[in-house]
Design a protein around this nucleic acid. Structure first.
Lengths: 210, 210
DNA sequence: CCATTGAGTGAACGTGCGTACACTCAAATA
DNA sequence: TATTTGAGTGTACGCACGTTCACTCAATGG
């Protein structure tokens, strides 16, 4: 037992420092954008010396990719949790709007990171995020394909509407990210906007052809 | 005459250098993103010494704002031209998709700049772009409000659907920007996607309530 | 024609950066 | 218990950066 505790201690300490670095980078990203921050800034913020950074990541780019992974893992986890909520079945649109705003609010930093670096980051980070979002579109397409009005659609059309949804999810997330804290009125406005946009799109489902 | 040519010469030379700086910044932005490039890089690319930069802009931020202005002026000009085209009246959606892709292709660099710095740039540049986009939403809302199915809608709803359109325009522009050159198949795919998305939204117009 | 103006020059500065290298010293291992 | 391992340290380096300052010299205008 003492042995396993010791074994854990070294690894655990390393893991702890790794998380400090990730947290520091995420934190600094919120004000300046990840692409703008330096290795030394991250190290300083994490409370380590610059050289120690290399024990965990080969470069800032690798740290960025780790943040992409972390962000999407967080997102997937939250969506999985939300799907267990019985309210989702009652009114999928209101629930989606609610979940969107709540989820983004809870892990603003991760969403802000994704939203910014999706277009502003390094080539590698940008590609990684685009890949994850493409996965999302495909996953959502599977869900949409089972909806009553959509089951007869061509797969291209389903992909198209899935992209439309994910895009608007990203845009709405951007809005929540930019939202100043403690403004429930703005929050409600964004939520209502998201709800209406989704409803408008869904209405189109019924009469869609080709 | 000699005098006016001379008068023009000094001003004209300054104007020429200013444009060299703007072009250099726009060019460098395409590979690295404006927020990532340095004053010295811009000066080098423009063929001037770093100190000469200050004769034209107080800071990189001011240069960024000038680029925002230039980009949106280009965009507005192109939209105004497109509206003169009689085809627009026949089929507004197909025309819009066509114009979108053509316009973005023609001034890719400006769109790439706007798309990236909209979220990744400095506070000042970001706000300027957001402001211009908000103006766009309002302008489009005026146009939309005159459409048959929409004339009875509340102004909030019109703004909402206008935002939906502008968002998708931005997203589609991002796709065209990321598109490698000389791939007409991809171009057609994006255009077709944009068309379908717009049609889906428009179909929703008819049965929208509240 | 001669004094003024001002766009562009070139050297110099202090700063923060990424990375190298040799190091410490506690935990892990045999 | 004695040895090895490896996370974190501290110094030092060369480099690019933004900005300063005194400058040149052709276009400008009285």
């Amino acid at each position: 037992m003492t042995e396993s505790a010791q074994v854990a201690s070294r690894q655990a300490q390393k893991e702890r420092t790794r998380h400090l670095i990730l947290a520091a980078a995420l934190d600094l990203s919120q004000t300046q954008g990840f692409a703008q921050i330096s290795l030394r800034q991250v190290a300083r913020h994490a409370g380590i010396v610059p050289t120690a950074f290399y024990r965990h990541f080969d470069s800032m780019d690798e740290l960025g990719l780790a943040l992409v992974e972390q962000s999407f893992s967080t997102l997937r986890h939250m969506i999985r949790e939300a799907q267990r909520d019985p309210k989702v079945l009652d009114n999928i649109i209101d629930a989606a709007a609610q979940v969107l705003v709540e989820t983004v609010k809870q892990s603003k930093a991760h969403f802000a990171f994704v939203a910014r670096e999706r277009v502003g980051g390094s080539e590698a980070v940008r590609r990684a995020i685009q890949h994850e979002l493409d996965l999302f579109v495909s996953e959502l397409a599977v869900v949409l394909a089972r909806l009553p009005n959509i089951e007869t659609w061509s797969s291209e059309d389903v992909q198209m509407v899935s992209r439309l949804f994910v895009r608007n999810m990203v845009s709405n997330a951007e809005e929540v990210v930019d939202m100043p804290d403690g403004r429930p009125d703005l929050e409600e406005k964004i939520k209502e906007g998201a709800r209406r946009q989704m409803r408008l799109i869904v209405i189109g489902f019924r009469d869609w052809r080709s």
